[in-house]
Simulated assay, not measured.
Amino acid sequence: MERSPWHAGEQRLQAHVGVAERMEAFGRKVIRSEMPDQHRQFYRQLPFMLLGAVDAEGNPWASILEGPPGFAHSPEPASLQLDSLPSADDPVQLQVGAAIGLLGIELHTRRRNRINGRTSEVGAHGLSVTVDQAFGNCPKYIQLRQFHSVPLADPSTRIAQRFNALDDAATAMIRSADTFFVASYVDVDNSRAVDISHRGGQAGFVRVEGNCLTIPDFAGNQHFNTLGNLLLNPRAGLLFIDFTTGDLLQLSGSTELLLDGPQVETFQGAERLWKLHVQQAVHRPAALALRWRQMS
Rank of each mutant, 00 (worst) to 15 (best):
T119C: 15
G210T: 08
S128D: 11
D132L: 09
H148Q: 10
N221G: 10
A172K: 09
H198I: 13
L213T: 10
R158I: 05
L238P: 00
N137H: 07
D168I: 07
N225T: 08
H125G: 13
G123Q: 08
D189P: 02
T214C: 11
Y141E: 09
L238C: 13
D132M: 01
D154G: 08
T171Q: 14
G200H: 12
K140Q: 15
D178Q: 10
V122M: 12
T226H: 05
R145N: 03
R162G: 08
D167I: 08
C138D: 09
A203P: 15
D167E: 12
R118K: 11
A169I: 08
L127A: 06
T214W: 01
V182Q: 11
C138G: 06
I241W: 00
L144G: 04
T157L: 05
R118I: 00
V194R: 02
F218C: 08
G220Y: 02
H223F: 15
I142F: 03
S197C: 14
K140N: 14
S176I: 00
I241E: 00
F180P: 02
V131P: 02
F181D: 05
Y141M: 11
E121K: 12
P216T: 02
V122S: 14
L238A: 09
S120P: 07
Q222D: 15
G136H: 08
N225V: 01
D195S: 13
Y141A: 11
D187Q: 13
G126K: 04
H223E: 04
V194M: 05
D195M: 01
S120R: 13
Q161I: 13
G204K: 08
S191N: 04
L232Y: 01
D178Y: 03
G210M: 08
A169K: 10
G136K: 14
T130P: 03
E121H: 13
D167N: 15
G210F: 02
G126R: 02
F224T: 07
L227S: 13
L231D: 05
I174C: 04
S184E: 01
P216C: 04
D217T: 14
L238T: 04
P155H: 07
F147Y: 11
G117M: 03
G201M: 03
G201H: 03
H148Y: 15
S191H: 12
R118H: 14
D217Q: 12
R158A: 07
V131D: 04
A169L: 06
S156K: 10
G220A: 11
R235F: 02
A169M: 05
A236N: 07
P155Y: 00
Q161F: 02
A170G: 11
G123N: 12
F224K: 01
T119A: 15
N233P: 00
H148T: 12
D189E: 15
G210A: 04
L239M: 03
V131I: 14
V186G: 05
T226F: 06
V131M: 04
G201V: 02
A160P: 08
